[in-house]
Amino acid sequence: MSQPCKESQPSEWSEIDELLRAVVADGFTVYLCGGPDDPEAIVATYAWEDHVDYVVIKDAHDVTAARSRQSRDWDVFTADAVVWSYHGHARWALRAILDLLPPDHPQAPDDEYPAPESLKVDEAHLRRVSVRTPRPGLVARRATRLRTATWGCRLA
């Protein structure tokens, strides 16, 4: 006799995959550190006019999302300071970066502090980095989505 199918929750990995796809769809540039086939770390960046949002994924439980002020010599792999960061499970870190207020929003974080060590990518993994840039048209998507969500229809 067959048993009825039980409804199952989506797996942790499918949820993380969905959130990663949302980050890519938001216009982030993706760096596969250690090579494209089996990366040791994944770094995704989104550049605003004066800030950069980014996330460093080492495994599902070791993900750091952050925002830094962008300077002329700023490098995602050696950031010294952040104005916001979140470290934890991929589920929460990816959601946090996706929902972070635009840097020009009055309530956006702006006080600088030392970058957490969890943002650092092992130098050995930087010898081979594959870069995937966003498809044309996606770069402005994040700014438009966040400004519309936080300020209603009035875009700055």
Rank of each mutant, 00 (worst) to 15 (best):
V30M: 03
L100Y: 02
S11M: 09
D59S: 14
T133L: 07
A124L: 12
I16V: 15
H61Q: 12
T150D: 07
T29A: 05
D75G: 03
G35M: 06
P106N: 04
A143T: 08
Q107C: 03
A93D: 04
P136R: 12
L100M: 10
S118I: 00
I97Q: 09
E18W: 05
A44S: 15
R128Q: 15
W151N: 14
L138W: 09
D111L: 11
R127E: 15
G34M: 05
Q3R: 12
D37S: 08
G35L: 06
R72P: 00
A149N: 06
L119A: 01
L98V: 03
S11K: 11
C33T: 09
P114A: 13
D17I: 05
G152L: 10
D73G: 04
L119S: 03
V121H: 01
V52L: 08
V63D: 05
V131C: 04
Y113G: 02
Y113I: 00
D38N: 12
P102I: 03
R135H: 06
G27D: 02
P102C: 04
P10F: 04
P102Y: 06
S118Q: 14
A81G: 01
L126F: 07
T78S: 15
R21H: 05
A25R: 14
D80G: 14
P109L: 01
W92M: 03
P106T: 06
R128V: 13
S130R: 09
L101A: 12
L138Q: 12
V55T: 07
Y31E: 11
L126D: 10
H125I: 00
L126G: 04
A66W: 05
L119I: 13
G152H: 10
